[in-house]
């Protein structure tokens, strides 16, 4: 039996992404020198929406890129083959810039660890910050988010699903309780 509970609807997601945009502007005093980098897949549409919000707030658009961390996973040997998606990032978007990584869910921290490794192959950022829509806890690495849409205390038996219009046709976040222990993010 699967139990499902809604955590965020379309309005809640929209408000959270607007608040995150305001926090990014406040902390970095504008968007000059800022690059938003979405982690594939669902971090990418979220990063584009935050960028659009920044445009509304500051009348200036940040640079936006995307990153697939498939080649940097630490569990390649223990999981079936999975193809990598496109990375759109250049050293001009990373080197000596403030990079805000954007992902949908922060869980073990291993995806972010892989993304940090990947970013360093493109250059040396001035700083890297992390924005996530959901922080569900259970970190396995010393990593924390700078901007959080919603903190959701979860059990490991639960699964967080983020759906976005660009990929899933709907904006919502819900939690599923499953019988098995979830192994990866």
């Amino acid at each position: 039996m699967k139990q499902v509970a809604l955590l965020m609807d379309e309005d809640a997601i929209r408000r959270a992404l607007m608040r995150i945009a305001h926090e990014i502007v406040e902390r970095n005093q504008g968007v000059a020198n800022l690059s938003l980098v979405g982690i594939r897949r669902r971090g990418v549409p979220l990063s584009e929406r935050i960028a659009a919000n920044l445009m509304v707030i500051e009348n200036e658009a940040p640079v936006v890129g995307s990153l697939d961390i498939g080649l940097y996973r630490d569990d390649l040997a223990n999981r079936p083959f999975s193809p990598v998606k496109q990375t759109s990032l250049g050293s001009r978007m990373v080197d000596r810039r403030i990079v805000v990584l954007v992902d949908d869910v922060l869980f073990t921290g291993r995806t972010v660890r892989a993304a940090l490794d990947a970013l360093s192959d493109f250059g040396r950022p001035t700083a890297i910050q992390l924005a996530v829509l959901i922080d569900r806890g259970h970190r396995e690495l010393p990593i924390r988010a700078d901007y959080v849409g919603k903190n959701v205390p979860t059990s490991r038996l639960e699964r967080i699903r983020v759906e976005v219009k660009e990929i899933d046709g709907i904006d919502r976040v819900y939690v599923e309780k499953t019988e098995e222990v979830e192994a990866t993010e």
Partner: peptide, 12 residues
């Protein structure tokens, strides 16, 4: 895309 990077080596 990797061939265009400044560091064209991934740890895969």
């Amino acid at each position: 895309e990797i061939l265009d990077r400044p560091i064209k080596k991934v740890p895969t």
